[in-house]
């Protein structure tokens, strides 16, 4: 073998995903810097909204606005972010239970490694320009001291 042929290339799947009325409403509200969920048949509030009740399977259509702050229920530290991660510095993936919601949702928390703990209070950091994507919330940050409930 005299030669080693090697080449970089990128395969792109340029998907557009239909959101449907429930996720579409969630994203439309995000664009207005509001977070909404749906209320299940048992009164629990799901955020992000569920289209169907996980127990009864009935269609859900009662939207409930929740706070853009809440509590870290669980988390995982990302010490070496990859290209596809939202940040190039270490951060945490976390389950955040927003005030007014009954289930947590996944998002990124930007905080120091030493600040991270289960039960910590966090606050959404909104993008300057919102587009109707989950990334309209850039991340959650530790709630400012004295601002808690």
């Amino acid at each position: 073998m005299s030669e080693r042929l090697s080449q970089q290339f990128e395969l792109g799947y340029t998907y557009t995903r239909s959101t449907g009325p429930i996720v579409g409403r969630f994203l439309t509200e995000l664009r207005q810097r509001r977070i909404v969920g749906t209320r299940g048949d048992d009164g629990r509030v799901y955020v992000p909204p569920m289209e169907f009740d996980p127990v009864t399977a009935s269609a859900l259509d009662e939207f409930v606005e929740v706070a853009d702050c809440g509590e870290v229920v669980s988390w995982c530290w990302v010490s070496e972010p990859r290209d596809s991660h939202p940040f190039d510095t270490p951060f945490a993936w976390a389950l955040v239970k927003l005030d007014g919601a009954d289930v947590p949702m996944v998002h990124a928390v930007c905080a120091g490694r030493d600040e991270m703990r289960t039960g910590m209070r966090v606050q959404a950091c909104w993008a300057e320009e919102t587009r109707g994507y989950i990334t309209d919330i850039v991340c959650f940050e530790p709630e400012a001291q004295g601002k808690g409930p």
């Binding site: 395969l11 799947y13 340029t14 998907y15 557009t16 995903r17 239909s18 959101t19 439309t28």
Partner: peptide, 11 residues
């Protein structure tokens, strides 16, 4: 109202 979002995947 948002009805669709772009969700590309690049390999």
């Amino acid at each position: 109202h948002i009805t669709a979002i772009e969700t590309p995947v690049y390999l």
